[in-house]
Design a protein around this nucleic acid. Structure first.
Lengths: 223, 223
DNA sequence: GGGGTACTCAACAGTTTCTTTGATAAGGAC
DNA sequence: GTCCTTATCAAAGAAACTGTTGAGTACCCC
């Protein structure tokens, strides 16, 4: 017991988990899967990769135990293996944000300037949900809305928002949310709505944080 | 804003953090550094690698912002950059333990059979520290004891334990602790003590968990 | 059973990472 | 200033990883 080779093997085992996340495309997959389960073809188009490559990366994630699968006919649905994996991904983002010098710059390049965007915190939204006088829109792809969304939110994927603005009642404040702090959908939604002279704010966090905070969630699409 | 190339770059950034932990030797370094700061030569002998290779891995960790340094004469001391990094390492271990099929086997190979070893929880030890009637020994290397240890614990590195048993008062229960759940030092200590007909238990967690639980800690060696 | 869809597997070339070796820099002792 | 210790750097071969291509397998519908 306690010899060097076995110690190395054990720590290599721990490193396998990190290795599974150690690729940008796999990180994207985990970020998407944190929203809810999706099938392979869907995931491939989401991360803009070939199905074969996406499948390959998903197998790597499955090999490290980070994701699990379910078959439904010809489709295979992948999901995160547990809330621990979600927590791991959140911790990686936190450490990157706090300690990696250039992550702010990369985030700014991707997200653009957020200074002019109004925000609302999770807790404030939770309070004001009951009061009414507020419309919450989920601007993620429909599949993610179906897999779970903030109770009372309406699904308007960001691609459809421009053509759907007219259907939103005027003079009511709108809150848009998406996958999380590093997701651009809600930003784009608020910018678009502001351009149409609507009052709009962005939820600071995303759906995974809302769900893990045990705030009210609905699963499935409404009739 | 929001284009694919920039999105990929951002997620590659997040993946850098995971990549930094994605090597068994670097995982060992993080595990040792979670105990407190150490200099390079010391770390090299701890993980049984050349100084050059250890230095190389430490530069990788520093590049990802996971460790920070301090110079003291010719020595350079490395430490974890923050409690976030400690938390990240703990989360990786948790996920590996819960989701990686063969980690139990690897742990068993390294640690041996723990069935016959008595344990004590962190909370129970914290309660019984005040009562007395208990000796706590820190069986990690001296440098780790010096960097911080459980208040009231005595430093007896595992290598010195066999020759120091006679100095421990008889008929008093002994609690041994080390780096954490996957550290073998306390196991070996309890086995050795049991062999000498002493009552001994192993602290379930290690020093990092004790410290992050805000339980009483002392820094430095005693006169 | 035939044909189509959804996904995985195997092989391959290009790239990156790991460890070792030997050289170089920075600081302290004399 | 010279020598010694400590740590980093540079180069190089071996090993592992990435993304693509084309073949193969599982399931469904007819």
């Amino acid at each position: 017991m306690g010899d060097q080779i076995e110690k190395d093997a054990l720590f290599n085992g721990f490193a396998e988990v990190a290795k599974a996340m150690a690729n940008g495309r796999r990180a994207e997959l985990i970020d998407v899967l944190a929203q809810g389960e999706r099938h392979v073809e869907d995931l491939a188009s989401e991360i803009d990769q070939s199905v074969a490559n996406t499948s390959h990366h998903l197998r790597v994630l499955a090999g490290a135990g980070l994701v699990a699968t379910r078959r439904e006919g010809t489709r295979i649905y992948y999901r995160l293996a547990s809330g621990d994996v979600e927590r791991l991904w959140a911790t990686v983002r936190t450490v990157a944000q706090d300690h990696l010098d250039h992550i702010d710059e990369l985030a700014a390049d991707y997200l653009g300037n957020r200074d002019t965007l109004k925000e609302i915190s999770r807790d404030e939204l939770a309070r004001r949900l009951d009061d009414g006088g507020l419309i919450v829109i989920d601007v993620r792809p429909e599949a993610e809305y179906a897999a779970g969304h903030i109770a009372g939110a309406r699904s308007i994927p960001i691609r459809d928002l421009a053509s759907s603005v007219r259907n939103l009642p005027p003079d009511v404040e709108i809150v848009a949310y998406c996958r999380g702090t590093y997701c651009v959908f809600a930003d784009d939604a608020v910018r678009l709505l502001n351009g149409r002279r609507r009052r709009a704010r962005r939820l600071q966090e995303g759906f995974p944080e809302w769900r893990s905070g045990r705030l009210p969630v609905t699963i499935g699409t409404h009739p």
